[in-house]
Design a protein around this nucleic acid. Sequence first.
DNA 1: CAAGCGTGGTC
DNA 2: TGACCAAGCTT
Length: 373
Amino acid sequence: MPSRLTPTTSASDAAPSFPPMPDFAARLIAWQRQHGRHDLPWQNTRDPYRIWLSEIMLQQTQVSTVIPYYTKFLARFPDVAALAAAPSDHVMALWAGLGYYTRARNLHRCAQVVVEQHGGTFPASVEELAELPGIGRSTAAAIASFGFGARATILDGNVKRVLARVFGVVGFPGEKKVENAMWMLAESLLPSNASNAELSAYTQGLMDLGATLCVRGKPDCTRCPFAPDCVANLTGRQRELPTARPKKAVPTRRTWMLVLRDGNAVMLERRPPSGIWGGLWSLPEAADEASLAERARAFGSDGAVSPLASFSHVFTHFKLNIEPRLAELDRGVGALAALNDAHTAWVALSDLDSFGVPAPVRKLLDSLHGSLI
DNA sequence: CAAGCGTGGTC
DNA sequence: TGACCAAGCTT
């Protein structure tokens, strides 16, 4: 029998077991009610639509980043029917800047499935929720817990960090084996005889503990209800748990972007539905200087292309060096409008809000707009 | 299964 | 200032 301070799971353990933790749920619920968060914009409602919308936006995204987007979406699309009926381009335009654009597409599809196959009402079970586009196991549990008081566990970044520290779970949580062990542990910690309200508070408590006390950098163990039992706290290993992601070199790519300008308008191209910035509107690109000049001529420019300040943008898995080039046309607004189709759009620099434009491209165009005034 | 998928916060 | 990663899901 290992000491309760001994890590009891690792990548090589076939059947991990964990130290006992009496009253984990009761202590967490009590802590959440006294010290947790109760005034986030998506709290104090049982409307599954609002809960779902917030949970999708919060995937891999911090609360402070989500709040303005959540407010915008709720104002424009007050219910699931309004969202389902909206054109895809409107949804993408409103999502622009938030990242992970597959979420926006799945959000829209999910709204349509709820309307067409569930009569406009979100299903109440975790199993049915998890079948909907963009809703995985953890998000389904969050929606079911907050919306219906269901007994289901989440397992997000907060919970992984809390569990790794409190129970001394060793191994990168992104690894399947470690994640599976954490799902088992999280399930085992759910309270057995709790009310709907208590189950909601329990789920919120998991998130709140990880987001406000058991943070990555400097966890505030003095205020933690699990400090007397926490493996990381008792052994001074808060910094080592959870186990960090294995380091990997980030490759660099380079692209040339064409700012084709006619007066106050620029030309945008719709990107392919999958891949980086899928489905968004961006600038025409080429793999080198000469190819870009060729594209400019094909669009009717005289071939005079001038350089703008280059910059780089870092994604999760690669770094992109962007070489913007400026070319000018003088056709006038009326002639430009006739060129627009499903893949091409001439857009006034003052009207970019109507299009889903990637954040770094938006910044480039905004700076250009500013310099033209 | 691991890889692909954005952006901004934080230190 | 670059490293690290956040209320993960899909392929």
